[in-house]
Design a protein around this nucleic acid. Sequence first.
DNA 1: TAATCGTGGTG
DNA 2: TCACCAAGATT
Length: 363
Amino acid sequence: MLIEQEIFKKININAFQNDLIAWFKNEQRDLPWRKDQDPYKVWVSEIMLQQTRVDTVIPYFNRFIDWFPTIDDLAEADEDKVLKAWEGLGYYSRVRNLQSAVKEVREKYNGEVPSTPKEIAELKGVGPYTAGAILSIAYGIPEPAVDGNVMRVLSRILSIWEDIAKPSSRKVFEQAVRELISHEDPSSFNQALMELGALVCTPTSPSCLLCPVREHCHAFFEGVQNELPVKTKKTKTRDVQLTAAIITDTTGKFLIHKRPANGLLANLWEFPTVEIHHPMQIDREQIVTLFNKTLDLDIELEQIIGQIDHVFSHLVWNMKVYTGTITAKFQETNEWKLVSFEEMKEYAFPVPYQKMFKLYQSI
DNA sequence: TAATCGTGGTG
DNA sequence: TCACCAAGATT
């Protein structure tokens, strides 16, 4: 790669490290996962923080560590309870991978989180960023931990015009970190880059006048901090038409269904739902038939109580919500359960179904 | 590589 | 209202 030669010329590495780390030690936020360096807690926090804001993560992290204080606690827990701990956080495969990886750590590494790049990167759900974050923060090993913050900050400081939306450009920034990282305190260095990105070197209108490494910043020198980083975008969401129903039996219990183990919202619970492919040419009777045939049920729909629109990363759900009743003897299975209001609280429901139940309660 | 995988905050 | 965003990984 040709870029390293330039990096050495542009930056006084020692002064940059010192200014950055000194700022971090003074200004870092007091966060629950910074109270110690327990590799398990660092790991949990890094998984939670993937694509998720710090303020959102804090209460989830505290409750998760309360429920599962150690690797053994998480490894032995029921998946339904683990998912319940993650309910509302999103990207649920993160926590299923985490539990799977924790079990592997217990079996292969005697319960100790491995401390080599190769071994840690093999764990489920641990990609290049998370591997570097755990190695540097928990073990003090000078490995790059390149997330969106780091790419933004370094694209400005080093004036790197790579498109950070391209997966291939991450390695450019990893190489940059390898040239710049403090070997005396890699933990503070990596965290400082991210903290700077979160607090000062923000995506829009960065606070350059407050920046501790302003004098090292090529973009600030050239006045192009608002043009960096280069990031192409593409977002096309598709609409999905669904009909879902709150179905009760004669005792007032609710019919719930466990979603498939793969794909969207895997292994979470939902109220019975069918997809409507051609909403213009379907009547109520056909919807009932669709429920009974698709879901192998025997139910009757009562009335529409409203509509829930929910936006995911790559699609939008338009859910028509009905109430309904069970019209025949019902047999519980692993995927189908009839639960009381109190029992329902033990099951993890994704947000659209939480919205749906609130709608039901409001009528 | 591009698509998939959630949610809540923000300008 | 809506595009964009936030400590990415997997397929």
